[in-house]
Amino acid sequence: MLRVHDLNAWYGPSHVLQGVSFEVGMGEIVCLIGRNGAGKTTTLKAVMGLIARRRGRVLFAEEEILARPAYARFGRGLAYVPEERRIVPGLTVGENLRLGLIATKRFRAAESEIAAMVALFPRLGERLDQIAVTLSGGEQQMLAIARAMIAGPRMIMLDEPSEGIMPALVDEMFALFARLKKSGTTILLVEQNVERALEIADRAYILDQGVIVHEGRARALLGDAAIKERYCSV
């Protein structure tokens, strides 16, 4: 589904990503692990086309997309939920959801698409007419994910989805990720709760100072004492 080869990215003179290569197969959950500042968010932004200076290859569904703008990547079925969520102030939950359909052919069928999201996120269904920024942090995160999912992407990239969320909603969110995987959605996950991420993931890559330093099956990494000591306490 996604193949990244020798990806380099810069913020000004800082060479943040230095030859990053990884793959995400169709229907997989793959997590990207690393300490703060390792380059995880930069990797997602570079794959999505949100960083100006980058070099390498990014193939999505066998198509080279590195030179394509972010909106074109979204149009090809690649969705991204940033850590900061970007809920639009002044709009209701339902209106925020409709924003995910504006650039698609599904906009005319918005109500049926919203109904599908409500089935996945029952909490949102109870709050469709509520101003979205008044939701709790966990509910706003669910809205951000639902807004990305409503257009039916083939793959979704999630950046720290459990950040600042109460434990009960974290459980609900990870259960959702497992359901999305069963439905065939491909997920690339950056997550601070490393143990929970490895429990649901198929494979994982460890990023350290802009370089992939280790990769393996998620269960194997979860059982590796040295890996757990270094990264699961992040």
Rank of each mutant, 00 (worst) to 15 (best):
residue 138 G to L: 04
residue 35 R to C: 08
residue 79 A to Q: 02
residue 99 L to G: 04
residue 97 L to P: 00
residue 38 A to S: 15
residue 38 A to N: 03
residue 88 V to Y: 14
residue 85 R to C: 07
residue 100 G to S: 08
residue 85 R to H: 11
residue 138 G to F: 02
residue 62 E to C: 10
residue 28 E to S: 09
residue 124 L to S: 03
residue 34 G to I: 01
residue 68 R to C: 14
residue 47 V to A: 03
residue 60 F to I: 04
residue 45 K to V: 03
residue 41 T to D: 05
residue 163 E to F: 10
residue 75 G to P: 00
residue 145 I to P: 00
residue 159 D to M: 03
residue 42 T to C: 06
residue 46 A to M: 06
residue 43 T to N: 06
residue 94 G to L: 08
residue 27 G to C: 10
residue 105 K to T: 14
residue 149 M to A: 13
residue 87 I to W: 02
residue 131 I to V: 15
residue 131 I to Y: 12
residue 61 A to R: 14
residue 128 L to D: 05
residue 57 R to C: 13
residue 114 I to G: 02
residue 141 Q to N: 09
residue 89 P to S: 12
residue 32 L to R: 01
residue 151 A to L: 07
residue 27 G to L: 05
residue 31 C to F: 01
residue 41 T to C: 06
residue 73 R to V: 01
residue 87 I to F: 06
residue 52 A to V: 14
residue 72 A to D: 15
residue 125 G to C: 09
residue 144 A to W: 01
residue 135 L to E: 04
residue 25 G to A: 14
residue 131 I to E: 15
residue 101 L to I: 11
residue 51 I to E: 04
residue 87 I to V: 15
residue 83 E to T: 06
residue 126 E to W: 09
residue 154 R to N: 14
residue 105 K to L: 13
residue 87 I to E: 01
residue 67 A to Y: 12
residue 97 L to I: 08
residue 64 E to L: 10
residue 24 V to Q: 01
residue 146 A to T: 07
residue 43 T to Y: 02
residue 42 T to R: 00
residue 98 R to L: 12
residue 113 E to I: 04
residue 98 R to W: 06
residue 50 L to W: 05
residue 157 M to V: 06
residue 160 E to L: 03
residue 106 R to P: 02
residue 147 R to H: 06
residue 50 L to A: 06
residue 42 T to A: 10
residue 136 S to F: 09
residue 94 G to P: 01
residue 84 E to Q: 14
residue 41 T to K: 00
residue 165 I to P: 00
residue 52 A to C: 11
residue 109 A to I: 11
residue 42 T to H: 00
residue 162 S to H: 02
residue 81 V to A: 03
residue 100 G to D: 00
residue 47 V to H: 01
residue 25 G to E: 14
residue 92 T to F: 05
residue 110 A to P: 03
residue 65 I to G: 00
residue 117 M to C: 09
residue 167 P to E: 09
residue 149 M to Q: 08
residue 136 S to H: 11
residue 125 G to T: 07
residue 92 T to K: 07
residue 145 I to S: 01
residue 48 M to W: 01
residue 35 R to K: 15
residue 131 I to H: 12
residue 62 E to P: 07
residue 36 N to S: 13
residue 90 G to A: 12
residue 106 R to V: 10
residue 80 Y to R: 02
residue 46 A to L: 05
residue 80 Y to G: 03
residue 120 L to C: 09
residue 160 E to T: 05
residue 115 A to R: 14
residue 71 Y to N: 12
residue 39 G to H: 02
residue 48 M to N: 04
residue 121 F to I: 07
residue 143 L to I: 09
residue 90 G to P: 08
residue 164 G to V: 10
residue 85 R to Q: 08
residue 37 G to F: 07
residue 89 P to N: 11
residue 91 L to Y: 11
residue 85 R to K: 13
residue 140 Q to D: 08
residue 65 I to L: 06
residue 127 R to H: 12
residue 72 A to G: 08
residue 53 R to L: 13
residue 95 E to N: 10
residue 65 I to Y: 00
residue 140 Q to Y: 07
residue 104 T to D: 05
residue 91 L to K: 10
residue 76 R to I: 09
residue 145 I to A: 00
residue 120 L to W: 13
